Simulated assay, not measured.
Amino acid sequence: MTAILQKTVPYNPLAEVKLPGIQPLPAEGWLAADDAFAGQMAEREHLLSARREAVLQLAPGAMAAAQELLELALNGIDPGAVTVAARADGRRVAVDRQDPLGTLGRLTQQDFCLLQKPEGAAEHVLTGAVLCFPASWTLAEKFMRPLTGIHQPVDSYGSDVAARVQRLFDGVQAGRPLWRFNALWYQDPALFQPRSQFAPRDKSHGSRAGYLRTEKQMILRLPQTRAVVFAIHTRVVARADVLRQWGAPDGMQTGVPAGTPA
């Protein structure tokens, strides 16, 4: 299969950032399309048709949050859309409010995870996701697990980082989204790269690999259901293009593995 690549990254993915590296996100910046839109959307369509159970999960109790997220996205993509919405390339997509995450998966490049905090619980739980582009984690293993369970076995996700992330999820305010990025060198440019938490990590990746995989990870609060949305915009860029744009030496920021919702 032909690699689906971007040519540039709108932030410096080689910059060293102290975890968790959170900063404010302009409210209009969370659903931006880029130069790989056509290729990524074709891959999303394929995965949602052929591998739906692997890329989409939704707990019954999270339906209202998923529907609220869909309406929020529609307001940014095609305000006023009711039964059909026009996405960034002009293609019209049927709006199915009984399949809100499936509809989102066909409208935007971003993946979405819904996290809700049950009454009396200490942590947010992953109650829904459309995750077409996992990087070294598997949705089925993380669905309905709390934040600490989602991040097993990430070495850098110790108790201090876990507490900071939970405070972040508790404190994020509606209308004031946040973002961070991560990045790792990959040998394989494929977008769909699930890996069981029990499987060994591919040691062929490293600073000499041919591709940089970076995620812009966005965190926002839904005002009505109060669920937290973790949105992921994945970019895979050839090594030469990364170094041409940023003129940076080899090396990579310290951070959690790409694709991990931290």
Rank of each mutant, 00 (worst) to 15 (best):
Q67R: 11
A231S: 11
L107R: 03
R97T: 02
H233G: 07
K18E: 15
P200W: 01
D250K: 01
R201I: 09
V82E: 12
C132M: 07
G255W: 02
G259P: 04
I150L: 15
A121V: 01
S207L: 10
V130R: 06
K7C: 01
G105H: 07
R97F: 04
L191D: 01
A50F: 09
Q224D: 15
T234L: 13
L243I: 01
V242M: 14
D170K: 03
F169I: 05
L114M: 00
R167T: 13
L191I: 00
R91Y: 00
I22P: 02
A174G: 11
G105V: 09
V256S: 08
E53D: 14
K117S: 12
P134W: 05
V161D: 12
V9I: 08
P118H: 00
R176C: 13
P118R: 02
E43A: 14
I232R: 11
Q57Y: 05
L131S: 11
L31H: 02
Q197V: 12
Q193D: 11
Q6N: 13
D160R: 12
T138D: 13
R221L: 14
L48Y: 10
Q197N: 10
L48C: 07
A73H: 08
D188E: 13
A94M: 08
Q166P: 03
L70N: 07
Q23D: 03
C132N: 10
A65S: 13
R195L: 14
D89I: 09
G247V: 00
D170L: 09
H233N: 10
P200N: 00
A81E: 07
D155A: 13
T8F: 00
A33C: 01
E215T: 01
